[in-house]
Design a protein around this nucleic acid. Structure first.
Lengths: 167, 167
DNA sequence: TGTTAATGGTTGCAGAAGCAACGAACGGAA
DNA sequence: TTCCGTTCGTTGCTTCTGCAACCATTAACA
């Protein structure tokens, strides 16, 4: 046993050094970037992360179903459901029955929703670019590749997600 | 306006493509790695993420205060407080008053806590390494550098955290 | 056709997280 | 010493998240 006064000194051979542990560092980084972004879409526009994702996806694709909002089970379907409900209540998203398959519904931005999209998106992009501004163009490309590789691998290691994967 | 049948076709000029947006991709990756890890420390040992971090930190440093658990405000102090309380109740962590400053308390793993640490840590490490196994040694070094750069920058962009930063 | 399985989506419930307010203790200045 | 600002840590409250159960609809298949 070490001496009792070694409060801040590492134990003989630590098995894990948290600050060097990749999952931890990824979590910290993701959390910080989320906070930075939340300043934009939460404080200024009252959007949660899921709501923001729905808005962006609809801004991008015009019209999709709730299921399409979580391409790889990234968001739980209940999360999407509640986000859409909230956005509908605020008049930012409109639902239309899909007559070909009445289980699902088409979602689209209302004009008000699109206005918000066009206000939020550029600011969010700007934050993203301010983040990346500390990396060279080459580093950004490399980062992108590495993230993709890791994401693919993580998907293999993570428990098979809720539903609708590539299965 | 585009035709009504363009359900899955992108709108003319999407402002943000979510799948290419760095913060989104970081969030997804971090979430997946957390899920992979949670299989170990949650399902097998009943530890939450904060509890896992406390265990690892104490395993690393032997004895610290609750404040030291969240070096950069990564965890909220209430989160740490509750995690420590739960661990104490399970007999994995022990508290001792700090007679030099009676506002804070020294925390340390009990023998049972250390046993769990020694069981969890190698498995968690293994997951981390399985994750990194898709990268070359050089890529791993690069990734580490990029994460550090981005984290530093994100800390500047994020709202000044709760407390105890480097201020 | 009828029966069974699978899918899109909603909701009740329980656990977790952040905020804010609080109590206790410390430190500095008058 | 006394007063004021600050810090460590806890707790109440509200919101969010994920799971699981559920309903309605569709698909598969005998």
């Amino acid at each position: 046993m070490a001496s009792g006064s070694a409060a801040r000194k590492p134990v003989s051979e630590p098995l894990v050094v948290l600050e060097e542990f990749l999952p931890y560092r990824l979590n910290v980084l993701a959390g910080l970037t989320s906070s930075a972004l939340a300043q934009i879409y939460a404080e200024r526009f009252g959007l949660s992360i899921p709501a923001w994702r729905v808005i962006v996806t609809l801004g991008q694709y015009e019209c999709r179903t709730a299921r399409d909002m979580a391409p790889d089970g990234v968001m739980h379907k209940s999360t999407v459901s509640r986000a859409v409900a909230a956005l509908e209540k605020r008049g930012l998203v409109r639902r239309r029955p899909n007559l070909d398959d009445r289980r699902e519904e088409w979602l689209a931005l209302t004009p008000e929703g699109r206005a918000i999209y066009e206000a939020v998106a550029p600011e969010a992009l700007a934050v993203g670019e301010r983040l990346l501004s500390v990396l060279t163009a080459q580093e950004q490309k490399t980062l992108s590749t590495l993230i993709d590789k890791l994401t693919r691998q993580a998907r293999l290691l993570a428990p098979q997600d809720a539903e609708g994967e590539e299965a």
